[in-house]
Amino acid sequence: MSVGIIMDAILRMLHGIGITFGLLGLSLAIGSIIAVLLLLMRISGRWWLSWPAQLYFYIFRGTPILVQIFIIYYGLPQFDWIRDSMFWSVLRDPFGCAIVALSLNVGAYVSEIFRGGVLSVDKGLLEAGAALGISTPQRFIYITAPLAIRISLPAYGNEIISLLKSTALASTITLADMTGIARTIVAETFAPYQIFISLALIYVTFTWIIQRTIRWTEGYLGRFTIR
């Protein structure tokens, strides 16, 4: 097994970078929006909003992402009404299915992370805001949210990193992300050990980059905690 083959393989796997980061970026963005909506439902104080949000969280936390991907990719097309609906253009495509599955998952986990952040904001600050006549929605936007985001950031960063690795599951539904390409190369070269080690190194590198970025952001957002 020569170094040449490994270098070759790494270069080919990096072609999957677009799909891997496309999955990561899109599902993070959509998932975070879902997370905020779920969070607002959870803290609304109205049971008919908070119960569905809790149910959602239980379902998505209680099942493996791989199973969810399979249900969405293999299961949903069995229903005529889904094939006739506006969602079909997304769900007929494995990329679309992976985005849907990952986003729904991110939404569930991140909403819990944000909720922890929101609950940890000092109630005294909200009282001070209320005493100044600042309305409830504005208190959420200008006081709760910025502080909650700062507090949530380390856990949110973990979630991004774990999402990066979850994107590899998309290779099971024919997507040629970095893992998908690696599997193709393995099938061609019969060198699983070298190829998968190389793949692992690529993921570790990206994880490191993401981690550094989050650290830096934490420091920036936390500048008001430094005397």
Partner: peptide, 21 residues
């Protein structure tokens, strides 16, 4: 109630300044 509150200033024991501003 927000309009009424804006006419009444309040100072708290624990200051409650917004730490991120």
């Amino acid at each position: 109630i927000d309009a009424v509150r804006s006419e009444i200033g309040m100072v708290f024991q624990s200051f409650n300044l917004f730490p991120h501003m």
